[in-house]
Amino acid sequence: MSDTAGEDRPATVKCLVWDLDNTLWQGTLLEDGQVALADEVRKAVIELDSRGILQSVSSKNDHDHAWARLEALGIAEYFVLPEIGWGAKSEAVRRIADRLNFAHSAVAFIDDQPAERAEVAFHLPEVRGYPAEQAPDLPGLPEFTPATSTVDSRRRRAMYQAGFRREAERAEATGPDEEFLRTLDMVMRVGRATGEELSRVEELTLRTSQMNATGVHYSDARLRSLLADPRHEVLVVTLTDRFGPHGAVGVLLLERHPEMWHLKLLATSCRVVSYGAGATLLNWLADAAAGAGAHLVADFRATERNRMMEIAYRFAGFDDQPCSCAAALTDEAGAGTGPEGEGLQRLHLVPEARPAPTTLRLEAPALFV
């Protein structure tokens, strides 16, 4: 759902899965020995990467031989979670999507063989399929053209690759998970968005579905208007650790009323769910509201994918019990009416002081004075 009507844009592809033989490269590796990479295909790979679209591989080949050829061609670094082996390609694509925590509708598959595209389409009907001859033209398609381009999107592959190294180290760690998280030396920063950062905020509202409390997309123009409104706070959350930056991982949109703060939107990246980002932000906000003597009201709209966000709200103490101070808010916002009110719930919290997080350092200025 968007805060602007009339938009008819196809959902952006988040990950493109390539076949290799006669698709990414020209020729069949096990038959021809040497295969070539067309310049226009190389340009497409590099361009999609620069837009923040992840790329992977699903190929029926010998893994070591195929990966060595990708390295020799100078493009191995562009592919995450390669699936090179002899199993069904639908299962390979499914594993890639699951590991990335992407909806199937955010994944695309390109292959020269109609039978392979059909097999993937049968088992994963939401995955978009493309014939090999379309490879050079993919950057020109709207679904491969994100609405925004940010610093984070241009380094998305590197951030995911760092994330896989974190996961590998986490899998080898012994003892409670909380102890491992402390070893990451995580620093979460919350700050007011600047004009330059708005594209990162808009991108988060566009790309995040599992951890978006309302499913609403706020456009750049709408966010700029809110920046100019003294009652609104548009807050950007970033996270770094010893492996490097996670980039912008969260956005909060808060409107302050007398004796009440209205959390219109909370969205966090799915990449940081396991680090408790949503819970940390809700606890910080509750603590700040308690210090200001303000009641908290949070918008929530259930979607097919954001059950985890509802759980985060409930664990933070939000419930369905309204307060008298929210009556004016309901009248003003028209809860339950119109496209922005459809399916909307208003969750409430009488905040109390909360302890500081124990697994990361939180840097959040006293924004609400």
Rank of each mutant, 00 (worst) to 15 (best):
V45T: 09
E47G: 00
R51N: 05
R51S: 06
R51T: 08
G52L: 05
L54D: 09
L54K: 09
S56K: 13
V57M: 09
S58V: 06
N61T: 05
H63Q: 14
H63P: 06
H65D: 11
H65W: 14
A66S: 03
R69L: 07
E71C: 12
E71M: 01
A72T: 15
A72D: 13
A72R: 13
L73M: 15
A76W: 12
Y78P: 01
P82G: 04
G87H: 10
E91F: 10
A92V: 04
R94W: 11
A97H: 07
R99N: 03
N101E: 03
N101T: 01
H104E: 14
V107N: 02
I110P: 01
I110M: 04
D111Q: 06
R117W: 11
A118C: 06
A118M: 08
E119V: 00
V120W: 10
V120K: 07
A121S: 12
F122M: 11
R128G: 01
R128M: 06
Y130I: 04
P136V: 06
G140M: 01
E143C: 07
F144Q: 05
T145E: 11
A147P: 08
T150Y: 10
S153E: 06
R154F: 07
M159Y: 08
M159G: 00
Q161H: 03
F164S: 06
F164M: 12
R166L: 13
E167M: 13
A168E: 15
R170N: 09
A173S: 14
P176I: 02
D177I: 09
T183H: 00
T183W: 02
L184R: 11
L184A: 03
D185W: 04
R189T: 15
V190F: 00
